[in-house]
């Protein structure tokens, strides 16, 4: 049986594209434009000393409670509704390594594709931001994000979605993000994503043996705004390495493209069927199987 992978949807999709009023199809591929210059941040785990200064700067910049001192916290944490970023400590084959975690600011964010109000939004500069005036709190962004970045205030009557916004307000006034601006060890570098990737590969080549040859975020989830360099394989740092190397929103495109064609074909089909069976009941009454 010719049930070829994707072909079913593809076929519908092709019809759909030609029938689409234009808007639907375009909106879905909006963010897939690789020509846009996104900004991003690179975290070099070989340089990070685990001082957690960025956690404090981040909390300060976003009006969140001050992080707890290192002796009161476990070595590995996840971000939550009161902290947009955490620096985790891992014992690895090359000794203690620190890694900073936060929303990755994907090039094609699953969260923004999921959001039915466009509250989650990929800005032209690169940060993925959240708009409380639009969000209805459905949490589909949390379900969809491959990195589990968005967090929800479960104990509030007016709950917000919390996650790193790459200090979008600061970027707009020309200032770099608070964490990258303040890092005393130059472990964080803010700049154009394209330049950061070049710089990352340069560091790998110029320091043989220091890094694994993998820039995390260059291709993960179709490319992310945050990029990582590390002295050890990323599995050892609790990073998901089984993620798709292509965009997550692309997974729903086939379905969405087939919608317009279904809207044209199904009613036409139903109407035809209705006409052709109009007199059927006459014989069915007697047959009644």
């Amino acid at each position: 049986m010719g049930l070829n992978r994707r072909n079913f949807f593809k076929l519908l999709g092709v019809t759909g594209m030609t029938l689409a009023v234009g808007k639907d199809a375009k909106a879905a591929s909006d963010s897939g434009n690789n020509d846009v210059e996104f900004y991003g941040i690179m975290h070099d785990a070989a340089r990070c000393k685990g001082c957690r200064g960025c956690e404090y700067d981040c909390a300060d910049a976003h009006g969140l409670p001050e992080p707890l001192p290192s002796k009161d916290i476990p070595a590995v944490r996840t971000t939550n509704e009161t902290s947009n970023t955490v620096v985790n400590t891992y014992q690895t084959s090359k000794g203690e390594v620190f890694i900073k975690r936060q929303c990755m600011h994907c090039n094609e964010p699953a969260c923004a594709a999921a959001c039915l109000t466009q509250a989650m939004h990929k800005t032209k500069m690169g940060p993925v931001t959240w708009d409380g005036n639009k969000c209805m709190g459905c949490r589909y962004c949390m379900v969809s994000c491959p990195f589990d970045s968005p967090k929800f205030e479960y104990h509030s009557a007016n709950p917000k979605i919390q996650k790193c916004d790459m200090c979008y307000e600061r970027l707009r006034t020309g200032e770099p993000p608070a964490c990258a601006f303040n890092c005393p060890n130059e472990a964080l570098l803010y700049g154009k994503r394209r330049d950061l990737i070049a710089e990352a590969h340069k560091r790998i080549v110029e320091n043989p043996g220091l890094y694994v040859d993998h820039v995390y975020g260059e291709r993960e989830a179709g490319g992310t705004g945050w990029l990582y360099l590390s002295p050890v394989p990323f599995e050892e740092l609790g990073m998901k390495t089984t993620l798709l190397k292509s965009s997550y929103p692309a997974l729903t495109k086939g379905f969405l493209y087939s919608v317009p064609s279904i809207f044209v074909l199904v009613p036409a089909f139903l109407l035809g069927l209705h006409q052709s069976t109009k007199n059927n009941h006459l014989k069915e009454e007697t047959e009644d199987e």
Partner: peptide, 30 residues
Amino acid sequence: LLLDLGRPWNVINPIIGNSFGTSSVLFLVA
């Protein structure tokens, strides 16, 4: 579904059209 929404007062947003998330499956379903 309304009970499950954290910010139900914004439920009209995708309906009255001040923010259409047309690339969202949930938008379609709603």
